[in-house]
Amino acid sequence: MTERDLDNLDVFFDAARRQAADPSPDLMQRVLDNALAEQQRLAAQAAPQARPQRAARGLLRQLLSAIGGWPAVAGLATASVTGLWIGVNPPAAVSTTAEAYLNSGADTYLVDLMPGFQFDDMAEG
């Protein structure tokens, strides 16, 4: 921009500064009337309305609601059946990993878990 363009803009800025910035009283009155009408409409909507009484919920329905409804029950049932199946008939990879992790083998029944306990003392008494 040149100096001449800036001088031309100053004329417009001076005119804007001299103009009154207050809105007309008629505009302000219409805005307030609309605001009051909207407040009254919202207050009427927010008024408490009579709700129908619900029947008391049973214990099973409360339990289902607490855990997430029937989709959650289906997930729990699926996980339970899968866990039971893997426990009864484990795949070879699971049993090998469990034996390595728990350090158990075929001779684990030979370990004396209570070396200080004598069984023959119980037989005499």
Rank of each mutant, 00 (worst) to 15 (best):
T2R: 05
E3R: 07
D5T: 00
L6N: 00
N8A: 01
N8H: 00
N8D: 00
L9S: 04
V11H: 07
V11K: 09
F12N: 00
F13M: 03
D14N: 13
A15Y: 06
R18T: 13
R18L: 15
A20V: 11
S24F: 01
S24P: 00
D26K: 14
L27R: 14
M28Y: 03
M28V: 15
Q29F: 12
Q29H: 14
L32I: 06
A35Q: 11
L36Y: 05
A37W: 04
A37D: 04
Q39I: 15
Q39R: 15
R41V: 02
A43L: 13
A43N: 14
A44E: 11
A44Q: 14
Q45H: 06
A47F: 00
P48F: 08
P48K: 13
A50W: 10
R51L: 11
Q53A: 14
R54C: 01
A55P: 14
R57C: 03
G58T: 06
G58L: 01
G58M: 02
L60V: 13
L60P: 05
S65Q: 07
G68H: 03
G69A: 02
P71V: 04
G75E: 15
G75H: 14
L76A: 03
T78A: 10
T78N: 02
S80G: 01
V81D: 05
V81R: 12
L84D: 07
L84Q: 09
W85I: 07
W85V: 07
I86V: 11
V88Y: 10
P90E: 07
P91Y: 08
P91E: 09
A92G: 12
A93L: 07
T96F: 01
T96N: 06
E99M: 03
A100P: 04
A100E: 07
A100R: 09
Y101W: 08
Y101N: 08
L102E: 01
L102M: 04
S104E: 15
S104K: 14
S104T: 15
G105S: 09
G105F: 00
G105M: 01
A106I: 08
T108D: 15
T108L: 15
Y109C: 13
Y109F: 15
M114H: 07
P115T: 04
P115W: 06
Q118I: 08
Q118N: 14
F119H: 10
E124F: 02
G125R: 13
